[in-house]
Every structure is written in C-alpha cells, then in structure tokens.
C-alpha cells in the first residue's frame, strides 16, 4: 500500500488524501507531528525529504515530495480520466493550473499558517498575493464556463482542480474571504458534491446533499 506522511491540517497533504478518496485508492497514513512537534524538520523526515516539507509519498522504491506529482501518480495508476486527454489545449491547461497551484500555497497557505499557527511572514503581502491569485482563478473559471466547461481544464474534474482546491477553500483561515468570487464558489460546490469527496478541518460538510432527516425525539 502507498504510504503517505500526512498532517491532518495541511492542505497539501489533504490534496493527496482527497485524490485517493475520489479515485478509490487506499493509503497507509503516517501522522507527522508538524505542529507543535515540528517533526517534519527532524532527522527521520529530513532523510526522506531534505526540503523539510510534507506530504511525502512512498510506493515501493518511488519517493515523491511534490504534491502535484503525487496527484498525477494516483490518477495514472487508478483513474486516468483525471489526467489531461490528448487535446493540446486541455493538456496545457492542466499544466498551467498545476504550476499555478504553487502560488496559492505560497500566498494563501502562508497567510493561513501565519494567522493560525503563528508562523512568521508578512501578512499584508501574503494576503495581497493571495487575492491576486484568486482573481486569476476566478477569471479562468469564468472563461471555462463560456467554453461550456465546468472545471479548470475540461468539462470534468482533473488533477488541476484538486491541486488548486484546498488552499482556495481554506483561504478564509488566513483572513482572505471568498465572498467576492462567485465562479470559485460554484466550482468549489461542484467539487464538494463529487462522489467520494472528503473534507478536512475548515471545510464543512455540504449538509444540503442530505435530505432533511426525520428527527428522533424523546419529547412529548
């Protein structure tokens, strides 16, 4: 089984857990004490990834330290539909948004770590670059809608959507609201409605997907 060095509050680790859940892959999760223990900077983890970041994915002799590569690996093994097809524009768009996702990590992810876990950073600059990235993503989704496509690279979800979704959905954790981005909010709902979707802390259940329950009552 693939082994994921995982932290429950890390949006990058969540990308891999989410992709695995959506494609039906079972992962062996090894919890890393990122906070407060800083275990990712300890000798055992640095031996696997000198960059000191998580997630880390191990499968046999394959060792991956970049979450986008992990998404591609999971998709290629279990659900090739989530990769780009043969269309040149589609292939380019998948790459475009996979690369772009790094900017979300640096900006919105940095703001979130600063506001939540007290990590150092220039919060105003992080938020400003986060807002700039959200505006690009919003325009990208508006254009996709005009092309009749519901997701970032195609009319089906791909690894590009999973690479971008977590840091965007958790932007409010870093004090960056999502109210100004209607196309992002619709896209986010589409992803959260996919069969097999799982949440992480900070992303609430879409309770509307379940019908109103018949409540049990002990009262008269």
């Amino acid at each position: 089984m693939m082994k994921l060095y995982d932290y429950i509050l890390s949006p990058s680790c969540y990308k891999v857990r989410l992709m695995a859940a959506l494609t039906g892959v079972k992962l062996d999760l090894r919890a890393v004490d990122f906070h407060p223990g800083l275990e990712h900077r300890g000798p055992e983890l640095l031996a696997l990834n000198p960059a000191g970041s998580i997630p880390i994915l191990e499968d046999g002799d394959l060792l991956l330290t970049e979450s986008s590569a992990m998404l591609v690996y999971l998709a290629a093994k279990a659900a090739p539909d989530w990769l780009a097809g043969s269309d040149a524009q589609e292939a380019a768009r998948v790459q475009q948004w996979l690369s772009f996702s790094g900017r979300l990590t640096a900006s919105l992810g940095g703001a979130r770590l600063h506001e939540m876990l007290l990590r150092p950073g220039d919060i105003d600059a992080l938020r400003a670059s986060g807002i700039a990235a959200l505006r690009e993503l919003e325009l990208g989704l508006v254009e996709q809608a005009e092309r009749g496509q519901n997701f970032l690279a195609a009319n089906r979800p791909t690894v590009a959507d999973i690479a971008c979704f977590p840091y965007v959905a958790l932007a409010p954790d870093g004090g960056v609201p999502l109210d100004p981005y209607p196309a992002i909010r619709l896209w986010s709902r589409r992803l959260r409605s996919l069969p097999g979707f799982i949440e992480m802390p900070g992303i609430h259940r879409l309770h509307e997907l379940k019908p109103e329950p018949q409540l049990e009552t002990g009262e008269a």
Binding site: D179, H204, L206, H207, E208, P211, E212
Partner: peptide, 18 residues
C-alpha cells in the same frame, strides 16, 4: 446565514442547524 445550507425551501444555519 450565508455560511448555511438550503434544503428544499428552507435556509439553515451551519452552526446549530436552525
């Protein structure tokens, strides 16, 4: 309530489900 959810013709609060 904008954080809440809509079921049928009702709008519910995400906090306690009212």
């Amino acid at each position: 309530l904008s954080h809440g959810f809509v079921r049928g013709e009702t709008l519910s609060c995400i906090y306690h489900g009212w």
